[in-house]
């Protein structure tokens, strides 16, 4: 059996002649990898193809497609990145007509690092690697099992570490608004650290991520204070599944709940009075 790196290189080589570029990871100076646009003009770059650590490639794809709307591109995406691209497509951020998805299935160790429930792609026609089952998320379970005062104390302590770098917002593939609520002084106090409780920044962001978060955990990875940000989003995602039967990035033509007009059944599930 060939390993994933070799199969991925073969898959990229197969699509390379038909597209303007393939977005994947490349090892750079000092062994530090970054996303790179492989092109047919420079096939020798493929010798430096890398798999891990994952990078927020959906965002890079969006940046390139905004400048070149007619470009034919291919992108190597893991399960979470694929979901991110699908969600961006649903919110009219990019056009998928000219984009070829090459699915990269995660390995057990990678899925466990991300505590990922869905480490596999579902939309990509070309896939590389063996798809594995999701792994449980002990951190989310631990916080969900806490009592209410414990949870309050836990989050108060975590949010106190926040240095307001806005990294989680900036790196998030689903944060693409031109005007960000979090930069508005009306909602998020400026010039004060640690932030006052309750932390408006984190609560507003969690609310905005509802039904959009694709559980890629980029926010947690970039957080200099190591706040388990994805926990809130994952707990909310369970409720969205229950209320609207919606999972971010799972079904290509299902409307996100933000755009829904409620039907009789959806409304009853929300637990509101009639």
């Amino acid at each position: 059996m060939t390993d994933r790196l070799t199969s991925l290189r073969e898959a990229i080589e197969a699509v390379l002649p038909n597209v303007d570029g393939v977005l994947a990871l490349r090892i750079g100076p000092g062994g530090i990898s970054a996303s790179h646009l492989f092109s047919k003009e420079h096939p020798e770059d493929l010798a430096k193809l890398a798999l891990w650590p994952k990078e927020p490639v959906p965002d890079t794809l969006k940046i390139i497609l905004r400048a070149h709307p007619d470009a034919k591109l291919a992108i190597v995406c893991r399960g979470c990145e694929e979901r991110g691209i699908v969600e961006m497509f649903k919110h009219a951020q990019l056009n998928l007509d000219n984009v070829t998805l090459i699915g990269l299935q995660c390995e057990q160790a990678e899925a466990e690092f991300c505590r990922c429930a869905k480490p596999f792609t579902v939309h990509s026609k070309t896939t590389v690697g063996q798809s594995i089952k999701g792994v449980p998320d002990p951190v989310t379970e631990k916080i969900a099992a806490m009592s209410q005062p414990e949870r309050l104390a836990f989050w108060k302590q975590e949010f106190e570490h926040c240095i307001k770098c806005y990294g989680c917002r900036t790196i998030c593939p689903q944060c693409f608004c031109n005007v960000c609520t979090l930069e508005d002084e009306k909602w998020v106090e400026t010039g004060r650290l640690p932030m006052a409780n309750p932390s408006m920044y984190h609560l507003i962001r969690a609310m905005h991520m509802t039904a959009k978060c694709v559980a890629c955990r980029e926010c947690e990875e970039t957080c200099p204070a190591d706040i388990p940000l994805a926990v809130q989003f994952r707990l909310m995602a369970r409720d969205v599944k229950e209320l609207f039967n919606y999972e971010a990035g799972a079904v290509m033509d299902q409307k996100p709940p933000q755009l829904l007009v409620l039907e009789e059944g959806d409304y009853e599930r929300s637990g509101l009075p009639h």
């Binding site: 000092g30 062994g31 530090i32 990898s33 970054a34 996303s35 650590p53 990078e55 927020p56 890079t60 940046i63 240095i163 307001k164 770098c165 806005y166 990294g167 790196i171 990875e221 970039t222 957080c223 200099p224």
Partner: peptide, 17 residues
């Protein structure tokens, strides 16, 4: 734009504002 370098020994993928 800017992206943090994930497997760098000093910043480990983090950046400040």
């Amino acid at each position: 734009g800017v992206l943090p370098a994930k497997n760098h020994v000093i910043s480990e993928g983090g950046l400040c504002i």
